[in-house]
Design a protein around this nucleic acid. Sequence first.
RNA 1: GUAAAUCGUUCUAUCGCUCCAAGCAAUUGGGGAGGAAAGUCCGGACACCACAGAGCAUCGUAGCGGGUAAUGCCCGUCCACCGUGAGGUGAGGACAAGUGCAACAGAAAGAAUGUACAGUUUUAUUGACAGAUAGUGCCACAGAAAGGGAAACUACCUCGAAGCAACGUGUUGUUUUGAGGAAAAGGUGAAAAGGUGUGGUAAAAGCGCACCAGUAUCAAAAGAGAUUUUGGUAGCUUGGUAAACCUUAUGGGGUGCAAGGCCAUGUAAACCGAGGCUUGAGGGCUGCUCGCCUGAUCUCGGAGGGUAGGCUGCAUAGAUAAAUGAUAGAUUAAAACAGAAUCCGGCUUAUUAAGGUUUACAAAA
Length: 125
Amino acid sequence: MNQFKKTERLCSIVDIDKLFSEGKAVNRFPFKIIYKNPSHNLGNAVQVLISVPKRKFKKAVHRNLLKRRIREAYRLYKFNLQEVPGKRNLHIAIVYIDSEIRSFNDIREDLKLILQKLNLRLRQA
RNA sequence: GUAAAUCGUUCUAUCGCUCCAAGCAAUUGGGGAGGAAAGUCCGGACACCACAGAGCAUCGUAGCGGGUAAUGCCCGUCCACCGUGAGGUGAGGACAAGUGCAACAGAAAGAAUGUACAGUUUUAUUGACAGAUAGUGCCACAGAAAGGGAAACUACCUCGAAGCAACGUGUUGUUUUGAGGAAAAGGUGAAAAGGUGUGGUAAAAGCGCACCAGUAUCAAAAGAGAUUUUGGUAGCUUGGUAAACCUUAUGGGGUGCAAGGCCAUGUAAACCGAGGCUUGAGGGCUGCUCGCCUGAUCUCGGAGGGUAGGCUGCAUAGAUAAAUGAUAGAUUAAAACAGAAUCCGGCUUAUUAAGGUUUACAAAA
């Protein structure tokens, strides 16, 4: 089932600080993904954080809309990451770096491509 | 038809999210953004600081009556202004570093205020409704003069002196000059200092008087009151700006849920040096002074150690990285402005393709 429970989300402030200060980045417009293997064992899980910068979207309605679209797209395509054997302890942050509001279909396709790119990077590592 | 106000969004299927309840579990059932949730501009509740004290400073408010927990909100009303009238208006600073975009308005032009400058607003009309008669400041340009009971440019009025002319020989006219004046005329400006008549005077003038206008005040009547009406008295008249300072009246103690409470983890209230110590340091989140409480667990420097968050507050939506979504279909379409974080009451600002409703106006019948 394509569920997206709270255990799959990154909530700890300490972990978020570490992710942004120590993590590596993958870019593919309109997204940027920051990823890092956490110090402690998550029990073969991926924890994700979705961010839309306030600087680019001043209205809360627009930020909410984009975060919901990205979250829905991630729910549908997260299997791309779960195929990686032995790399399933992972913290990632998905940052939306465009300044336009894209449709759900565009976001879905772009997120699919960047997740595949991240998967490839992890296999090579 | 035009304008304004108002109405603020249905259902089905599949896959998800969050909270609650039931269950060992799988799962099942139920709740799940707005009229503005926004701006954070007022008023409260609630919490802590002394169950909150005094004075000053500072800030808000400004006709009257009522509503309300309360308000700067709402309703009614008084006065002013606009309109033949029914009636209407009281907006803008809840703009104030800059830039961009959009909309609206506009023929031009607009003093004092504010501001670094600019801009905005309004214009059929116009009180940011206490005071301009407590005091201070300011009033560009134009104009003689802009608030000093001021001022005289052109033209003018009156008187004195000198010269000239005329004749009726002490008058008239005229020129120059000195003094007084501001009534009538011109011109400037947003605004030129009560109006008319009469007395008065050399000529004038609220200089005196009568009437009118206006201001203050007293009395009577009406009204809950602001206030109104009538009559008397007074000085005879006092420009604007309080959105300059200020004065009067009145209100506000401060801080805001990151308030505050509880549990838990680590720990160093340790060490070294200097100072302070009940004759009171420091602290108690308030601009100052006082007062009150606490009472060495203080201050500065050096070297150095260590951590993990959760519950509550908190809601018949409700978390703590923070839910309310995606796809497909039906209705023309599911859209405008826009997303709850302690909770209420207001205000302000933003806003809809079509349509409904209400009001106003116009036209037609």
